Amino acid sequence: MTSTPRTRAREQTMRDIVRIGREHLVATGPTALSLRAVARDLGVVSSAVYRYVRNRDELLTLLVVDAYDELGDAVDAAVDGAAEPLAQFRQLGRAVREWALREPARYALLYGTPVPGYEAPGEQTTAPGTRVIVALTTILERAHSTGAGGSTPIAAPADSGSARAGALAADFARIRDEFGLTLTDDALARGVLTWAALFGAVSFEVFDQYGSDTFTDPGALFERHLAHLAQMAGL
């Protein structure tokens, strides 16, 4: 269906609002976002903006979805260019790091300190927010199904009671069903740890947790981290 001039104008205004919102996010941080300030930079009265975005939380949601989608696009593009699971995993990790270092304010919005008083609506943010983990599990599943992955299973902790083990097994079964996976419980546990450690490594660099004088080449450290994470994931 061909869009009407009014529809195209509305879509352009929404793009402008997101663009200006990004600029304000970098300049002032998420807690200081103001629709009045966005309206001023858009060149309209504040009441006009409220016809598109009702409040600050809606603006934050637009920025969250926009950031998740751009990160997801970067990961998908990087992974598509790699031939086998190990190379795909390395490209995924590099894409996450490169985007985070290029967009630290937007990365912080997604993975930093929660914005006080804001709760992201799951119906809008869950799908874009899980794109990276979906890409990762797809890589692990491909490796598992083609015989390119695998590692010696680790025994369950000695203090894990039957109730705890049963609950975790049920969680893994639900995840397998939700994502269409055949990975074993041990492979899923490794995958979750790989996911958490990957973003932990990126966050330490983005938020300067190592300190300015600890590593002269953080990229080299990250490549070493990727090698260890790939081994842990069974790649």
Rank of each mutant, 00 (worst) to 15 (best):
L71D: 13
R40G: 05
L63T: 13
E141N: 12
D186H: 07
R15V: 09
A87M: 02
A233T: 11
R174Y: 08
P121R: 05
Y107I: 09
D66E: 14
R106P: 13
R164D: 15
T61L: 01
T61M: 02
G122M: 10
A197H: 03
V75L: 00
E119D: 15
P121K: 05
V45F: 02
R176K: 08
Q124T: 14
E58Q: 11
I139E: 12
R164L: 11
D41V: 05
D41R: 06
L226I: 07
T184Y: 05
H144V: 08
A220Y: 01
A77M: 06
Q12P: 10
A230Y: 03
T4V: 13
G72D: 08
M14R: 10
T130A: 02
A105C: 05
A105P: 15
L226E: 02
P218W: 01
S46Y: 07
D213I: 08
L221F: 08
D57N: 12
G200A: 12
G122S: 13
D69I: 04
M232F: 04
G147E: 09
A156C: 08
A167E: 14
A120P: 15
L71Y: 09
F204Q: 09
S203Q: 08
E84G: 11
G150C: 08
D16Q: 10
L25T: 13
A189V: 14
R224V: 11
F222M: 01
R15Y: 01
F204G: 06
T113L: 00
G129C: 00
L226N: 01
M14C: 07
D171F: 03
G112S: 09
P114Y: 00
L33S: 08
